[in-house]
Amino acid sequence: MSNVCVEYKTRKLSITALNHVSFSIPNSSYTVGIVGESGSGKTTMGMTMMNAIEPPGRIVEGNVEYNGSDILRMNERELRKFRWREVSMVYQSAMNSLNPVKKISDHIVEVLREHSDMSRSDARARAIELLDEVGIRKNRADDYPHEFSGGMRQRAVIALALALSPKIMIADEPTSALDVVVQKQILSLLRNRVREKNLSLIFITHEISLLCDLVENAIVMYRGEIVETGPIAKLLFDPLHPYTEMLLSTLLTLESKKDNMKLQSAREHYTQNGENYCIYINSCKYAFDRCRKEKPVLREIQKGRAASCHRW
């Protein structure tokens, strides 16, 4: 993705979802987590990568290239080949968008037959295989979505996403609607499949602790901009950007002690994306003069780690 700007416009509001964002997957088997809160643009990132932005959203600037071709300029046919075969997506409500009158196995069979010339029996055999890989036993493959629990439906969705052996999988909050015990199962499943098949994984979430065992790199987003990138191991314990620092310090874990936790700045006011100041200015505890006059650029601070902050 280079220099992408996405905005959402209705009669009353105009919101910049992504502000000149650039991002790349340098090689295969590259796993990265995109962390951000509401309004950070993380979901928009995922949708942009699939060219799935719909009105009132609009990609205003920039381009997205995959293997040399610009996804944003593809026609319907090329896009269909691109989606599912090269890049596939698992999103939070996917488990609820399964067709209620189709058997789970048929969902996969259809996708297989649409995108390849497999015979019906071959496709069915492969579907059963794929479902088994995600932990759904053969005797349940012909059940309907409403007969499955949320966790099982999400497994089925993952099987669907893996059906055509894509190179990249984008997962947007796939476990947010699931209980914590089921979440752990799904994440283990995801991690193992990704590693076995040498996939690249882009995992979008608001919960940074989920990334610990799942991805190697992380990107932190705030109000439509990338504020920090780097290997997860470094980012979690030695954050560069004040926002990352804040995210980590307000994290509630089983080890947190109430007395150690301090009240955060209550100001959450919406800061307009401006060209002359840092986007985090209103909430940053380190802010100084330069931050109000000059917008910091996302640049490499240490080897493999970048941040957009004037402190470095």
Binding site: G135, R137, G151, Q185, S188, E207, T253
Partner: peptide
Amino acid sequence: DSTPKLHLPSASDKVSEERDQGVS
């Protein structure tokens, strides 16, 4: 055990996985 914890990523290649209980 399932509650996410902040920790250094484990080096192991494969994480233990549980089969679905088959419960709907």
